[in-house]
Design a protein around this nucleic acid. Structure first.
Length: 603
DNA sequence: GGGAGAGACGTTTTT
DNA sequence: CGTCTCTCCC
């Protein structure tokens, strides 16, 4: 991608404004920009990689699309989904089903690669969408996921949109991770351009957001294409390439064939080891990492991949305890506790009484059903009279307005209002901070974030802005110095000379599926999990001349049953609180090229 | 609105 | 296995 951009700029003399480079993540976008700058090609520094979401948002804002629809670009925080889900009511199915519907709506209802995006596929879907949009409109907010459906509708409905003719060259990275709505939106943006897509169907691992490998597989069938296959695996040791080839060969409909080994990389070292318990597994991994570091391996060259937090945490804590610099990518968000969420909501409401989502969250907080019924009554009044939520509640509180069965809600409102008054009366910013966020172990992470971004800030509005950015768009350091502990999903795009994959057990890799899952879905998910494992093992890098690459695949025989259940790992059987596990079938699949498994031995 | 009891759920993840 | 969610009833 980088080299193509360089060629367009340098050889073909294309204006950088005519080139659109789209990436899946913010990190990839920053990465691309950094690489382009380092190329020292004239104009390359002016080209920024963009995520599809940021591009969508700027197109929608530029064209006042949301304003015309009566929508407000106030994004919902993750935790603010709770009252929304409660208010939507269970005639749409249980909470789980409602979440799934929100996700499908965010994919513009194209759940499958073969489905055309843009319209609900059933009256039930449509009814759900109507209710969802009504709630969001009334609460003057939107879901992050709505950006794509809105972009798609805008581009489809406006054949004359300037954006459809803005670019002469489109470059799209990680194409296999895009769902149909995203693919089709990009198709509109590039309808008069040369399009270059980059991706690997064997690394498609985002079906939960309705991205399927068939998207990239069908590309060349639908568009005249000049294909460039990259067959040689330049990164991995030869043993790993062989393992990966036999593994992925079991998947159907693949675009490419086997990867070619690069003999110069050397065979590498692969270890497969079973442990009696998950605890022993964690200890062995941590011990091996400690000895590697002892031997002079820089911590940043070691990654530990765990598909569940429950496998990641003990290793992370053990390494930390040993004084080894370690970073967990499962790290908690500052808004993980209800207490922190409440502080954040109070701040939002203090800055804007009309922040209806914050107010709705605060009104329902702590109640099993979020006070759905009384809230619905108040909302009905707001809807009919066109007053604001804050005004309606103030009138109720003052007794000017009477709505039956809303007593508990009004009591709660008065508490909130009283707290806002106290905060509004604080003497100065320090006093305000003390009042707003008193010391509390439950809000410790939020306090830390406040400390981090407090510099130069002397009012609540700026504090909120800085906090919001710090929480929703955390800085990703370009250079890490630590051992990294992360999920297989997060590891995509990384490579490292030392890779540990822990918890390689059946029921996790591949994952357990619900009893209702259809045979086709089962097969599709099995193949996706196989790709996930494939992504994991191919993170190993031969870093010659020093290192030929090390991969450890480990799995426990038993683990604490409650942990297995709470992290959706299907045990073979459970006895006295202990879950018994079987090795991942993927280990059997790579067996022809992998070493024989060891038991309880040092790695 | 609250309590009791039955039943479902829990994960990975991007913007 | 432990907790949350849902339904039913008062």
């Amino acid at each position: 991608m980088k080299r193509r951009v360089a060629r367009l700029l340098e050889v073909e003399q294309i204006d950088s404004a005519q080139i659109l480079a789209v990436t899946f993540t913010r990190v990839a976008a920053e990465d691309l920009h950094r690489e382009l700058v380092s190329l020292e090609v004239p104009g390359a520094g002016g080209l920024h990689g963009r995520t599809l979401h940021s591009l969508a948002m700027s197109i929608l804002m530029r064209n006042h699309v949301l304003a015309v629809l009566g929508r407000t670009p106030r994004p919902l925080n993750e935790y603010e989904l709770e009252p929304l889900l409660a208010d939507l009511g269970n005639h749409h199915g249980n909470k789980h089903a409602r979440k799934r519907l929100i996700r499908a709506y965010g994919a513009a209802w194209a759940r499958l690669q073969t489905q055309e995006p843009g319209f609900a596929r059933s009256p039930a879907d449509q009814a759900f969408a109507d209710e969802l949009v009504e709630w969001l409109t009334l609460h003057e907010a939107m879901l992050m996921d709505e950006v794509i459906p809105h972009l798609f509708q805008y581009l489809r409905g406006n054949p004359g949109a300037p954006e459809r003719a803005e670019y002469s060259h489109l470059l799209i990275d990680e194409y296999q991770d895009l769902n149909r709505a995203e693919q089709d939106s990009l198709q509109f943006l590039g309808e008069n351009s040369s399009i270059c897509i980059i991706g690997d169907d064997d690394q498609s691992i985002y079906s939960f957001r309705h991205a399927h490998p068939d998207g990239i597989r069908h590309w060349a069938v639908l568009h005249p294409t000049d294909e460039h296959a990259i067959a040689e695996c330049r990164r991995c040791p030869t043993t790993v390439v062989r393992m990966a080839n036999t593994l992925i060969a079991r998947n159907a409909g693949r675009l490419g064939g086997a990867m070619t080994e690069r003999a110069a990389n050397g065979p590498g070292e692969v270890v497969v080891c079973q442990f009696g318990t998950a605890e022993q597994e964690a200890t062995a991994v941590a011990t091996k990492i400690a000895s590697l570091i002892e031997a002079g391996v820089p911590p940043r060259e070691i990654i530990v991949l765990a598909q569940r937090r429950t496998f990641a945490s003990p290793i992370f804590h053990r390494l930390r305890a040993d004084g080894i610099p370690t970073k967990s990518y499962y790290a908690e968000s500052a808004l993980d506790t209800v207490e922190a969420q409440e502080r954040f909501a109070i701040l939002k409401l203090l800055l804007n009484n009309e922040d209806r989502v914050a107010l709705r969250w605060l009104l329902g907080r702590g109640h099993p059903n979020w006070h759905t019924n009384p809230y619905r009554r108040v909302l009905e009044h707001v809807r009919q009279t066109g007053t604001s939520l804050w005004e309606a509640l103030t009138s109720l509180s003052d007794g000017i307005l009477v709505i039956p069965y809303t007593g508990a809600l009004v009591d709660r409102f008065e508490e909130i209002k009283a707290e806002l008054e106290v905060l509004g009366a604080s003497a100065d910013f320090d006093d305000f901070l003390q009042q707003w966020l008193p010391d509390n172990p439950e809000t410790e992470l939020l306090s830390e974030t406040v400390t981090l971004c407090r510099e130069g800030i002397d009012n609540p509005a700026d504090l909120f802005g800085a906090l919001y950015d710090a929480i929703s768009q955390p800085e990703v350091p370009l250079e890490v110095a630590e051992v990294r502990v992360m999920s297989l999903h997060k590891s995509k795009g990384l490579s490292s000379p030392y890779v540990f994959i822990v918890g390689c057990v059946e029921g996790l890799l591949p994952a357990q599926l619900g009893p209702e899952t259809s045979p086709e879905d089962r097969l599709a998910k099995l193949q996706e999990d196989r790709r996930l494992f494939y992504v994991g093992i191919t993170r190993v890098k031969s870093d010659l001349p020093n290192r030929t690459g090390y991969l450890a695949l480990t799995y426990p025989q038993t683990m604490v049953a409650s942990e297995a259940f709470s992290s959706q790992i299907a045990p073979v059987r459970v006895r006295r609180g202990i879950a018994y596990l079987q090795p991942s079938r993927f280990l059997a699949e790579i067996a022809p090229h992998a070493p024989a498994p060891q038991f309880n031995s040092p790695l």
